[in-house]
Design a protein around this nucleic acid. Structure first.
Ligand SMILES: [Zn+2]
Ligand SMILES: [Zn+2]
Ligand SMILES: [Zn+2]
Ligand SMILES: [Zn+2]
Lengths: 134, 134
DNA sequence: TTTGACCTTTGACCAAACTCCAAGGTTTAT
DNA sequence: ATAAACCTTGGAGTTTGGTCAAAGGTCAAA
């Protein structure tokens, strides 16, 4: 059984982060010492790794909670359910990427049209373009 | 001279948003009525369009403020300066896009490996992958 | 026994960009 | 004259994922 500081140190996170996860229902220590210290066991550590890996691939904490619930009672879920969550997340990421690409393309066009020279910006095509009537 | 509600309605934003822009130094109405109502003129409207267009291509309000300052005193800036801001933003967007792409690829791999069938998730490769030792 | 490192709790604070609320004043139409 | 629709202000709440501080309890070593 590890105390909060040890677990935090091994995973390079803050103790506050572990308390935050507990408060928000993601990871509660399986015990407490006589004096009230949190005590985490191996299973808690596995769960923490799950959380950190899921975070690493872009899931939000809310989505991770959903995955944890499924993982905790695997037998009552189907592969379909799990795959659907992941595929929804893929779609979400692709929407976001498309949006960013559009931003980038717009800006690239603006930049391409600007001479970029050292003279006065009074004729700058970028500023002009932003002022165009909508 | 338009009152806040009219301007908001014409640009499909909330009056609160205009007050927010004012409070944060982006757009102050050029006058007030005797009773204290905000009054916006044509120049204010041009500035609002600038803000909304810049927001539309992905600038944050802080960046828009910078552009507005430059626009307000174009003569004392060079095309270089303006172009640099836009190009920095392009780089920023590309970094973000690369990050999202990595998330998506990781998730796509997970999804591809999962059978997605209607049977129990006890053997689900997605859940397994998330639990793998770090 | 007295540091020092560790732990506890509660509660405040951060970014970003709004959004909503309450309590009241103004304008316009009927 | 009065209701409806508008406006004012200040302040709080939203979302996400933490981070920090204060005031105090616990534990091991010297
Ligand atoms: Zn130029
Ligand atoms: Zn230019
Ligand atoms: Zn399966
Ligand atoms: Zn599966």
């Amino acid at each position: 059984m590890y105390r909060i500081g040890e677990l935090a140190q091994r995973y390079e996170i803050k103790t506050d982060t572990l308390r935050y996860y507990e408060k928000h229902g993601l990871l509660a220590p399986s015990g407490r010492s006589d004096s009230g210290y949190r005590l985490y066991d191996e299973a808690d550590e596995v769960k923490l790794r799950f959380i950190l890996r899921a975070k690493g691939v872009g899931f939000t904490l809310a989505q991770i909670q959903e995955l944890l619930m499924i993982d905790a009672s695997r037998a009552s879920w189907a592969c379909q359910d799990v795959k659907a969550i992941v595929e929804n997340k893929v779609v979400e990421l692709e929407r976001k990427m498309a949006e960013l690409k559009q931003f980038r393309d717009s800006l690239q066009q603006l930049a391409d049209a600007c001479c970029g020279g050292p003279e006065s910006a009074e004729h700058c095509s970028i500023l002009d373009a932003l002022e165009v009537r909508s």
